[in-house]
């Protein structure tokens, strides 16, 4: 009787230990396994049927920022990302409205949108450059900021502060060479 009780206890302890080992092992895997990707999506996007092309229009935008945006959309177009960009200088309903100005705060640029059921309201986004805070950036840096905003227009959010990605906030992406990075491109492909 006592022997049976001991045996049961030992078996229970063994099973518990095995389960603990499995949990620990899985935990180690979760901690050590590198993330499959860094890109993050913000939950809203263009209608899949209207990204060929994604039209944009400049509204009284300073030439330095027009150039930055055009070079940025060309950089995205040069990647294996879905859709392509096209300037529609007189369109009444472009998919990206590009504006600039000198705004309150110490930020470079922003992209805004309304969202209905995961799709952009009116199928459009607004990209705004703060010419005051971007004045000190080089032409290449302005282009990279524009690439970042186009990433937002596609539907990407900011990535965590690790590695070289155009969707990383701040100056670090200026040191990375050719952008967008593969992870940014993978993000857009995952959305569309």
């Amino acid at each position: 009787m006592s022997q049976d009780l001991n045996g049961t206890l030992i078996r229970r302890q063994s099973v518990t230990a095995a389960l603990l080992g499995v949990v620990l092992g899985l935990g180690m895997l979760l901690v050590t396994a590198p993330p499959a990707h860094a890109y993050v999506t913000h939950g809203c996007e263009y209608d899949n049927n209207s990204i060929d092309p994604i039209s944009y229009r400049f509204y009284s935008v300073n030439s330095a920022y027009e150039t930055a945006f055009k070079n940025a959309e060309a950089a995205w177009d040069g990647t294996a990302s879905p859709g392509y960009f096209s300037e529609h200088s007189t369109s009444l309903d472009p998919e990206i409205n590009v504006t600039d100005g000198t705004y309150t705060g110490t930020w470079w640029a922003q992209t805004s949108w309304g969202c209905n059921n995961g799709l952009y309201s009116g199928n459009e986004t607004n990209v705004t450059f703060d010419t005051g805070d971007m004045a000190g950036l080089t032409a290449t840096q302005k282009k990279i900021v524009a690439e970042h905003e186009i990433g937002h227009a596609y539907g990407l959010a900011d990535t965590p502060q690790t590695g070289c990605r155009v969707m990383r906030q701040g100056e670090y992406k200026f040191t990375c060479g050719t952008m967008p990075a593969q992870d940014d491109i993978n993000g857009v492909n995952a959305i569309y």
Partner: peptide, 23 residues
Amino acid sequence: WSLGPFGRGDSTVHASFDAPVYS
């Protein structure tokens, strides 16, 4: 009006900014 420029049709305007990062 709903299709016009500057994103009407949804009362909440969402925005993402890029700015210098101080770490």
